[in-house]
């Protein structure tokens, strides 16, 4: 309960709501980095996943890529990228995107690939063209996994963007690192709780998307990992 007390004290202090280090600015920065990275990661990962899933080629590469990405230590990657390319939004976003593409790609691939062979056969047999099979049958049936991939990527990005404050990026991670530096645990707690809240909101958004985008007939199967 100590934590909530500290958080409230920090959160209700009007000094923390102003200027470039104010809560609105930092929150917006965090959302901006994360949203942009997710968008770009999706723009890369979704088409690749749909293509490999639909044609069935490159599955092994996709799966290995996912395993490899999971093993990468994000802190090390972010520091290395910044060390080589300099501090800036570009290098950090590149790192965030690189870490987020594999889960999007692999889950999309797996989702499309694992659509029941009978269903695909029936779709083709009824005269659907390749793109019709993909858009009318495979994507709707694979929607739970596609969303799972996007969700995993979003979670990964929000977390890594927090860590990225270590290399002088903005966002909510700033409070954590600056507070730590100043031995101001109140700010550390404030930043951490805000990050947790943001993560919870992201999870909530994906829950809503699931209700919205996953057809009722396929909502039955909901494996998450």
């Amino acid at each position: 309960m100590n934590i909530l007390g500290l958080f409230w004290e920090w959160f209700s202090d009007s000094a923390n709501w102003q200027g470039t280090d104010g809560i609105p600015t930092r929150l917006l920065e965090h959302v901006w980095y994360s949203g942009l990275s997710l968008l770009i990661a999706a723009a890369i990962g979704l088409p690749l996943g749909l293509l490999t899933g639909h044609t069935g080629r490159g599955g092994f590469v996709a799966a290995s890529l996912a395993n490899f990405a999971r093993a990468l230590p994000t802190l090390g990657i972010v520091i290395l990228v910044v060390l080589i390319y300099g501090v800036g939004l570009g290098p950090v976003l590149t790192a965030l995107i690189a870490l987020a593409v594999p889960p999007v790609l692999v889950n999309t691939y797996e989702g499309i690939r694992n659509v029941d062979a009978d269903i695909k056969d029936a779709a083709r047999g009824m005269g659907m063209t390749g793109p019709e099979v993909l858009f009318k049958v495979e994507i709707p049936a694979a929607m739970p996994l596609i969303l799972l991939g996007l969700r995993t990527a979003a979670i990964q990005i929000v977390a890594t963007a927090t860590v990225a404050a270590y290399v002088s990026l903005g966002g909510l991670g700033r409070y954590i690192f600056d507070g730590f530096q100043r031995q101001d645990y109140k700010a550390v707690v404030g930043g951490s709780v805000l990050v947790v809240l943001l993560a919870v909101i992201v999870a909530g958004i994906f829950l809503a998307l699931r209700r919205l985008l996953v057809p009722a007939g396929v909502r039955q199967s909901g494996r998450v990992a």
Partner: peptide, 19 residues
């Protein structure tokens, strides 16, 4: 596709679209 749209097709597991 054109050919198949004019021919009915039924398979063992029905292959119904779950969505």
């Amino acid at each position: 596709p054109e050919l198949r749209r004019g021919i009915g097709y039924v398979i063992q597991q029905a292959g119904l679209f779950p969505h």
